[in-house]
Design a protein around this nucleic acid. Structure first.
Lengths: 190, 190
DNA sequence: ACCTGAACACCGTTCAAGT
DNA sequence: ACCTGAACACCGTTCAAGT
């Protein structure tokens, strides 16, 4: 009546890296990054905390890296776009990427400083590819890709910092501000 | 011979909020954010950890907020600039601000997501003021200020993420890339 | 007013043991 | 192969006590 883990052990879906990461993301989104502990994650997975180490030998470090990869690796679609529409492709990607970051605001500090380059290289490469196909020179494309990604991440960070405070003063229309700044950056490219 | 804290207690400089924050920043810069603990901070200050709570009643939360304010609050100098040189003022501010963030890379994740708007409002306001004095319209100035700050923070984050990895591939010239992206942003303003 | 010391409820992680 | 349970060395913070 109290708890019968050994009986249900056979029936429940087995642990997997993917299920661990997704459950961890749920905890971060719902309760904040500081409440993500191995013990709590174990509880949510209906498993002892130590079982997680069997799938993530590097422990919490690896867990956090997995979270970053899960939310920050979102390349733009370079192929199949109408020629000359590269600005629209970038606009669409930026809106979607910003949405991702805001939806998982708790992992933003990890995205920013986890030494996990692999999580972003695919994204940066895709942006450069879109620009290159749009006829932008190689050097400019490399700069613009980093500028755009830096802007989107930095702006999302500013937004997250501001939300939920003294709305009395005068609320910033972040949607409008993001779009305007985005046009400013894209306009600077060419 | 072992330790005589009670004897030296009178001679050492007394605890102060400023000294606490500065010592904490030294720990973060030297050993990383994860090694900043109240106990270690107490050791560095030659005091029991609990003494810190007397100056920072909100504990570690308040300590981290103090760190953010200490490094991220760095307004641009709006006054005394030659008229028409507002772009140079912004260039100078951006270079300095980036330098600050990179010098204290350990606090960058805190700058990004600590709900501590006060730490950045003075900085944003100063940028808007520089733009307004430069003849930029109010609305554009508000957008450009956030865009610029977002870019600088986001770009610094990308830089920090990348350093110290497989330099084998092909190292990015971050200085050049930052400057190029900055010109792109400033050029977009007007 | 300012600091200490012991205590409490947590952490991440190791390691031997179970199945 | 996969998971458990106890243990270790830490955390942040409270609270009564010292000076």
């Amino acid at each position: 009546m109290v708890r019968q883990p050994s009986i249900n052990a056979q029936h429940r879906t087995p642990l997997s890296t993917e299920r661990i990461i997704e459950t961890a993301l749920q905890i971060v989104d719902g309760q904040g990054l500081s409440r993500l502990t191995m013990r709590r994650l174990g509880d949510a997975l209906e498993v002892e905390a130590m079982a997680i180490y069997h799938h993530l030998p590097r422990g919490k470090e690896q867990l956090l890296d997995g979270l970053v990869t899960h939310v920050a690796s979102a390349p733009a679609q370079a192929e199949g776009a109408a020629p000359g529409s590269w600005k629209d492709v970038l606009r669409g990607w930026a809106a979607g990427y910003r949405g991702r970051l805001l939806a998982h605001a708790g992992v933003l500090p990890l995205v920013v400083t986890r030494r996990n380059p692999a999580a972003l290289t695919a994204t940066v490469a895709s942006l450069r590819e879109v620009l290159r196909r749009g006829g932008v020179a190689e050097d400019t494309a490399a700069v613009a890709a980093h500028t755009l990604l830096g802007y989107v991440i930095g702006h999302a960070a500013l937004e997250v910092r501001d939300t939920g405070e003294d709305g009395a003063d005068r609320a910033v229309d972040w949607d409008a501000r993001f779009t305007a700044g985005l046009e400013l950056v894209i306009g600077g490219v060419g």
